[in-house]
Simulated assay, not measured.
Amino acid sequence: MQTQNITYLSLGTNQGDKAKNLQNAINQIDKKVGNVLQISSIYKTASWGFNSDDFYNICIKAVTKLDAYKLLETLLIIEKDLGRQQKTKEEYEDRIIDIDILLFNNDVILSKDLIIPHAKMLARRFVMIPLAEIAPSIIHPIAKEQITNSAKKCNDNSEIQSIDIKLLQPVSISDKYNYIAIEGNIGAGKTSLTKKLSEDFNAKIILERFAENAFLPKFYNDKERFAFPLEMSFLADRYQQLTDDLGQFDLFKSFIISDYYIFKSLIFAQVTLQKDEYLLLRKIFNIMYKEITKPDLYIYLYQNTERLLENIKTRGRSYEQRITSSYLKKIQEGYQGFIKTEENLKILLIDVSEKDFIKKNEDYHYIVDKIKCF
C-alpha cells in the first residue's frame, strides 16, 4: 500500500486572468498530484524582487502518493501545461503560474534539485500569511515552531491584501458518493479499475469471489448441466457478501467501491438458464433485492467484443478460454437492456474500448473526471 503524503504548496501568478490561473492550477494539482484538501484566501502583493504587475498568491494543502521528487517533476509539468515559459534570465520575472513546494510531511530534504522546507518561505509574507491561514499549528521542521508564530516573526514588510474572490475546491469522489458499483462484461476491466480507484481514493473494496466458486470451471465445460447451480451459488454468495460488507462501516475508509452489482445475477441468468429455471431464480432474487443497499453510482464499462476476447486471453484463466464472442454479445445485450430500463439507479456509461486505464495515466484520469463530473 502506497504512503499518503501531506504537502503544502505556494501558488502565485501576475499575468492574465490571475484568479483563473490559480483555479486552473488547483484543478490540475487535484487531478495529477492528489486531492486538494484546503485552499487559502487569495492575497494580493506587489511583485517581489522586481517591478511588475501585482501578484495573486495562495497556499494549498494536498494529499499525494507521489514522493517529493516526483511531486516536483509533476508540478513543473503542470506549470508548463498552464503556459509558464522557461526562464530567460536569472532575475525574478513575470509568470502565468508559479508553484513551489513549501512542506512535505515533516521531511527535511537538502539536495541539488530540491530543498524542503522551502529555503525562503520564512522570509516571505506572501507565503507565510496564506500558509498560516490553513496550517497555523503545523510545526516548521527546521525552525521548530508553529507556522502562525513564524508568520508573526517574518521580517518582510511588503504590503499584503486579502482579495474577495473565492476559489473552488475540486470535488473528491468520496465527497459525492458513499457507494459505487462498477460493472461490465467479462474482461472489461472492472476489477482492475475498482482496485485502482480504491487505492487512490481510500475506499473500502468489495471484490466478487468468483475464484471460489467450484461450479464456474464446470459450467464452461458443460453449460447445460451446471448453469442453474452456478447462477444460484453466485446469487447466494453475492447477496451474503454485499449484505455483510455494506453493513460494516470502516472508520478508516472514505467510501465503498465494488466490482459488481447483484443485478448481474439476472443478466447472466437470462443468458444461461432455461425459462423455468430463470423464473425460479428471479423469485428468489426479488426477495433478496429488497434488502440490498443500492449504489449511489452504477458505472458500466463498455468494451467491444474484440477487446474483451483479447483481455480474456491475456489474463489466461484456463476455464475462460472457451468463451465465445456470441456468448459475450448476449451478456452485453443483457446489460444494455438493464441500463435502458433501470430507473432507480444513477448509471454512468463509459466506453473504454480505446482506453488503457492501467498503463496510461491520461486514460485513467479521463475515467476519474467522468466520475467526478457526472
Rank of each mutant, 00 (worst) to 15 (best):
M1W: 01
T3W: 00
T3R: 13
N5Y: 10
L11I: 13
G12E: 07
T13A: 15
Q15C: 09
Q15M: 13
D17S: 10
K20G: 03
Q28R: 15
K31M: 15
V33D: 06
N35V: 11
Q38R: 05
I39D: 08
S40K: 09
S40Y: 07
I42M: 12
Y43A: 07
K44M: 11
K44Q: 15
S47D: 07
D53H: 05
C59W: 05
I60M: 07
V63H: 14
L66W: 10
L72N: 04
E73Q: 12
T74C: 04
T74H: 01
L75G: 09
L75W: 07
L76N: 14
I77P: 07
T88G: 01
E90Y: 08
E90W: 09
D94L: 03
R95D: 10
I97M: 09
L103F: 14
I109P: 03
K112Q: 15
L114E: 06
I115S: 14
I116Q: 04
P117M: 08
I142Q: 15
I142G: 02
K144F: 08
D156G: 05
Q169S: 14
S172P: 00
N185T: 05
N185F: 07
N185S: 11
G189D: 09
K190P: 06
K195A: 02
N202C: 12
I205S: 10
L207N: 02
A214D: 14
L216T: 02
F219A: 07
F228M: 13
F228R: 08
L230D: 03
M232S: 08
L235I: 02
A236W: 05
Q241V: 04
Q241R: 04
T243M: 06
D245K: 14
G247L: 01
D250H: 12
F252V: 10
S254M: 02
F255I: 04
Y261S: 04
S265V: 02
S265G: 05
I267L: 08
F268G: 03
Y278K: 13
L279F: 03
L281T: 08
L281K: 08
F285G: 03
T293P: 03
K294S: 02
P295W: 06
Y300F: 14
E306K: 14
R307N: 13
L308F: 01
N311K: 05
G316Q: 09
R317K: 12
E320D: 07
I323E: 03
I331R: 07
Q336T: 02
I339L: 10
K340L: 06
L345C: 08
I347A: 06
L349Y: 11
V352Y: 03
K355R: 11
D363M: 08
I367F: 03
V368I: 15
D369S: 13
D369E: 15
I371P: 01
K372S: 03
